[in-house]
């Protein structure tokens, strides 16, 4: 089921949480709403679910206008950050709930409901735990039950709100892979909210990066990472270093020193962004040259913090951890790939 969000605005007590947001979600894709807290990503997800009503704008499920439909009528599967499992029901009863509450006309027979619930528990690899209660499961297991419960109603869209947010790093990584597998097998259109860029980059077909109630950029993980369209996206996705520079006839200058980087458009002050690992060390004069302020080894790389132009600016660069330059007190480098945004 494709989902179209059209010019949606949402205010809470006159405080705008979303400004005029539009987003097309293709059928069967796995899309991540990514942003810091307060960016409106969860609000957007809850609007798609029907747990909130938009102040303005429309939401379409396929060709059908779902804006006025209640959450029950939309037939969505929603997975909550804190699982929201029914604590007084067994795992099997939790998964069966969505089918049990259907009106008699569309409710499957008892045996059929049980069979489907068991099948789903099998899918989420929890067979054998049918009779347990949520409190007897680990966090990761609970979230898998929550997913099975959401899938039981054969939802048109699967919506996950920070599904791994309450789990520890190891379990997160496992569940991430596992969710991808489930998605590939069941093919549900899936929207998930996260503030964890690594999770989004690894899991999603497309990213929708949000900030302050607006969509900053939508695209595949690679395109968002390689071609960020705004300073916010550059800073939020992946590591970044930034410097205030001046453009003069295509060349970049930091104060009165040329950077040895050319090919820029425009003239005047601008903000230079580059990735700490996208640099090359050079011995030329026309380069960024800085004094090592600190140097830390992080796994296989060495992250060096440099002070440039006296101590006016600080940038970070990454070197292989055994690179001889890591021993020096002064390092000259040039960004290999970079991007300029208007100053300010």
């Amino acid at each position: 089921m494709e989902v179209r969000v059209q010019n949606v605005r949402k205010e809470f007590d006159r405080f705008p949480a979303l400004h005029d947001v539009s987003l097309d979600i293709a059928s069967g894709e796995l899309i991540a709403l990514l942003g810091p807290s307060g960016s409106g990503k969860t609000t957007l997800l809850r609007l798609i679910a029907g747990l909130e009503r938009p102040t303005a704008g429309k939401i379409f499920f396929g060709a059908e206008d779902a804006s006025e439909k209640s959450v029950q009528e939309r037939n969505i599967g929603f997975v909550f950050q804190h699982y929201a499992l029914f604590r007084h029901m067994t795992i099997l009863e939790n998964v069966s709930f969505g089918l049990e509450v259907r009106p008699r006309a569309t409710r499957p027979a008892k045996a059929e409901i049980r069979r489907r619930a068991r099948e789903l528990l099998d899918l989420v690899q929890l067979s054998g735990l049918e009779k347990r209660y949520p409190s007897q499961l680990s966090g990761g297991q609970r979230q898998r039950v929550a997913l099975a419960r959401a899938l039981a109603i054969e939802p048109r869209v699967l919506l996950l709100d920070e599904p791994f947010g309450a789990l520890d790093a190891q379990v997160r990584r496992e569940l991430r892979k596992w969710l991808r597998e489930i998605h590939d097998r069941t093919g549900h259109t899936t929207v998930f909210v996260t503030h964890d860029q690594e999770e989004a980059l690894e899991l999603a077909d497309r990213l929708c990066v949000m900030s302050q109630g607006k969509i900053e950029q939508v695209g595949t993980p690679d395109s968002v990472y390689d071609h960020p369209q705004s300073p916010f996206v550059f800073g939020f996705i992946g590591e970044s270093s930034t410097l205030p520079v001046t453009v003069e006839r295509g060349d970049l200058w930091l104060g009165d020193r040329p950077l040895g980087v050319s090919g820029a458009e425009g003239n005047g002050p601008a903000q230079l962004y580059f990735r700490p690992h996208d640099i090359e060390l050079v011995e030329a004069d026309a380069a960024l040259s800085g004094v090592v302020a600190s140097s830390r080894r992080v796994g296989g790389t060495r992250r060096v913090e440099l002070e440039l132009g006296g101590s006016a600016h600080r940038v970070e660069i990454d070197l292989p951890f055994d690179h001889p330059a890591g021993e020096r007190s002064q390092i000259s480098f040039r960004p290999k790939r970079w991007k300029l945004f208007p100053a300010g």
Binding site: Q72, L85, V101
Partner: peptide, 9 residues
């Protein structure tokens, strides 16, 4: 909210 999203009245 979970119950409502699962279709319960």
């Amino acid at each position: 909210e979970a119950a409502l999203s699962l279709g319960a009245s």
